Simulated scan of single mutants.
Amino acid sequence: MKLCAAFIAVASASSWPGQAYNGTIYQYCGTKVTLAAASVNATCSLDFNGFDFAHISIPGCFSQGMGSNIVECNGVEGVTDPENLDVTVFWQQDFDLDGNLDNSTCAEDADITFSCQDNGAAPSGLFF
């Protein structure tokens, strides 16, 4: 059982570098993290410490759009996990002076900060 718990703890946050495969460069590195957040009937703001992302996925958290490096989303009862946000981010990765992928331009799970503001009710308006 301890082994299983250790695996879950390690699997709850991970980051990976961009890849080059058979001459094809995949210019995105990524991070997957589970954040302990009470997001139901709340608006959560996620900040990425100034890093640029190419794509973000937060299942069950609904957004009206995003700012430059801040994403706001709203949890809905019966849809959103009441205790966690499962966040997957693909970061925009740059090249170094030699044309290689530069992993220092990738954020990691520690670069994702968040706060949730309880709204006391489900969000109103159109969300996606």
Rank of each mutant, 00 (worst) to 15 (best):
residue 1 M to K: 07
residue 2 K to E: 09
residue 5 A to V: 02
residue 6 A to D: 10
residue 7 F to V: 14
residue 8 I to N: 01
residue 12 S to P: 00
residue 15 S to I: 07
residue 15 S to L: 04
residue 18 G to M: 09
residue 19 Q to H: 10
residue 21 Y to V: 15
residue 23 G to D: 04
residue 24 T to A: 10
residue 24 T to M: 08
residue 26 Y to Q: 09
residue 28 Y to I: 06
residue 37 A to Y: 11
residue 41 N to W: 06
residue 41 N to M: 06
residue 42 A to R: 14
residue 42 A to N: 11
residue 42 A to C: 10
residue 45 S to D: 02
residue 48 F to Q: 04
residue 48 F to P: 05
residue 49 N to P: 05
residue 52 D to S: 15
residue 53 F to R: 09
residue 53 F to T: 07
residue 55 H to W: 12
residue 56 I to Y: 12
residue 56 I to T: 14
residue 57 S to C: 00
residue 58 I to D: 05
residue 59 P to W: 02
residue 61 C to D: 01
residue 62 F to I: 12
residue 62 F to Q: 04
residue 65 G to T: 06
residue 66 M to W: 10
residue 69 N to Q: 13
residue 75 G to D: 02
residue 76 V to K: 15
residue 78 G to F: 11
residue 80 T to L: 01
residue 82 P to F: 10
residue 85 L to M: 15
residue 86 D to G: 04
residue 86 D to V: 10
residue 88 T to A: 14
residue 90 F to R: 11
residue 92 Q to C: 03
residue 95 F to Q: 12
residue 96 D to E: 05
residue 107 A to V: 05
residue 108 E to I: 02
residue 115 S to N: 13
residue 116 C to K: 03
residue 117 Q to A: 14
residue 117 Q to L: 14
residue 123 P to H: 04
residue 124 S to H: 02
residue 125 G to Q: 09
residue 127 F to G: 12
